[in-house]
């Protein structure tokens, strides 16, 4: 499941969490596939984001994420046990893009 802002919705995406209006009424339940006309109607409601199925084709690329990781661990990545934590995180990122 990932969060997509209204402007980035595309036809064919599948709703992963019910979309409700201000009164709490469910407008689209989970499992519904989005069409262009549905997206237009959602656009007219006061909704910022929608949750859709599937993992993000992340806004960030693999290299960007690895660079972020390096940045976060730049001072301590060599320290005792920190290498283990870093290694596990690195493997997880690489797995996603395999």
């Amino acid at each position: 499941m990932r969060r997509v802002s209204i402007g980035d919705l595309q036809a064919g995406m599948v709703v992963a969490k019910p979309i409700t209006n201000e009164a709490g009424m469910v407008m689209l339940s989970e499992g519904a596939a989005l069409t262009d006309s549905l997206i237009r109607r959602l656009g007219s409601m006061e909704i910022g984001h929608v949750f859709v199925e599937g993992d993000a084709p992340d806004a960030k690329s693999r290299d960007e994420r690895l660079a972020d990781l390096e940045m976060r661990f730049r001072k301590t990545g060599q320290e005792k046990y920190m290498d283990t934590i870093k290694k596990v995180l690195k493997a997880r990122i690489e797995e996603v893009y395999k």
Partner: peptide, 19 residues
Amino acid sequence: LLTRSVGFGFSGDNHVPAV
């Protein structure tokens, strides 16, 4: 430390301290 190391939220530090 793990919360920082995945980059969730911001604790004020831009790098992860050692465990």
